[in-house]
Amino acid sequence: MVKFLAGFVLCALIALLFVVAYSKTKQAKELIAIEKQTIDLLKNPNGKIPILSEDELNIKINAVDEKINSVNKRFDDLYLLGGTIVTLLLAINIGIFLRTQAEVDRYFKKNFEAHLGRITDYEKQAAEQLGKITTYVASLETKNQVVEQEPNA
């Protein structure tokens, strides 16, 4: 499964690389063509550049505006998509955090009484044993005292 996903991602990356490379090549060709056209216009043997009509000028301006608007829209789409992805990731993180917190709270509430009871029992047992040991030591001390006194008596 992991290998399949890795292969899928690799293919997607290669495809993206081809698209970007093609796009850049096409852009470069277009730019070179525009530059060549501009140079041709400057080298016009008649010494004058043909005057554009108002309509032709408006058409060119509209075309440029359309391109600019198109690019802006693409950026808007990218921002929207990026924002959506980031929001989704944040939502997932917050969801996981809240769920984990709720699970931990529930576990502690469910087992708290049992743990507390067990600790209290251990405490009682320990105290009882300590009391027994103290008493046993005290009785041993008194026995020793009796034994030490007996030879003298």
Binding site: E123, A126, L130, G131, S139
Partner: peptide
Amino acid sequence: DNFSRSYIYGAITEAISQ
């Protein structure tokens, strides 16, 4: 104070045992 009570209880039972 369960500790003190249990301690005394342990002391009493051991004393009886002795």
